[in-house]
Amino acid sequence: MKTSFVLFVALSSSMALSQSAAPKLGEAMAVDLHVARVDWHPMGKAIIYTKKEEDEKGIGVFVPGQRNGKIVMRVPFASSFDTTWLPGTDSAILTMYAPRSKGMDFQLVLVDADTGKASTLFAGTYAENHAPEVLIEPSPSLRHAIITFAENGKRHHRILSTDSNRLVDAVDLDKAEKLGAQGPNWMATGTAAYTNPSDSAHPPTTSSSLVASGSNAISTTSTATFTAIPPKAIPVLSDVPIVGTLFISRPGIAPGTMVYELNPSQANLFESHYQPWSEVYSGIKRLRQKNSHIVARLDQSVAEADSTWLKEDSGLPAYVAANASKVWISPRSKGVAYLIDGALFVRTIQ
């Protein structure tokens, strides 16, 4: 009996020791009211959220540490949008659709969460089901993206120039793609590289479809076929499924290979030696939301509520809030956003 008790204590202690510490949460920051949806920056740097206003829908931004969220634009209730973050910055491109009586408005909007400003990159009105399909491929480090428009069976490219808040036609890229160039592969500098079509060192082998990030993203199928990524070409990205939604599989190119590099400000292609983008991710926590029931008492009165917790699979949980109706954990568990009676709060995770 005594032995089993000692064994139990020892087991309990070892179990306790094997559990990692509970995540440490910062103070709750009140962000805005009547929030319906939150999109976290992939590195947890900021959020974009939608707010139900009386007559329309507000799109707001918040950077943890700022005083509160800020509505950067207002759109009709019926409009929908997808968010593509530019992960090296606090900016995102919103792909927006707003139905009209005949047709729909289509917009690309650049939102800067840090400054709380929104700039329209592209706007057009289209007949129903005729809006272009768009693929946005963000640079991993620059405020720059390659945007492929598929419209009436034709494809053309524009880039978000690093020089300005506008799109620049990428005529070189259209031509190169027609000649068989494949990409983008992201270079160490955050610029895009495309294979030289005449380079037989990268024969297309694997077919792949391109899907824009975001839950309701428009998808477009590329006509290009891609070589499989060599296991060591971008080893870290494949280990992080969340980030995988941002960087689409592309043909692997050996470092030092001659490629076409896309000038991120002028959109022209020039020859360059390929140096791949790489990023080391360490200590990524995978926190999950857990809920438990609260029974509160005051004298003889009893009331019930819910509590929200965050925990790693084998870790101790941390208490987040009571009566949170919705919870959004940032992709790398850098922060948690939650709603209490329509009010949005954010807590950073240390």
Partner: peptide, 28 residues
């Protein structure tokens, strides 16, 4: 006292009491 698995946390609660007696019924 908020509990989950073997972890505890503390929080405060606000109640409204009907009447001034100690055992008056209260709503959270």
């Amino acid at each position: 006292v908020v509990q989950f698995e073997r972890s505890n946390a503390e929080d405060n609660s606000l109640w409204l009491k009907l009447g001034v007696e100690k055992n008056s019924p209260a709503s959270m």
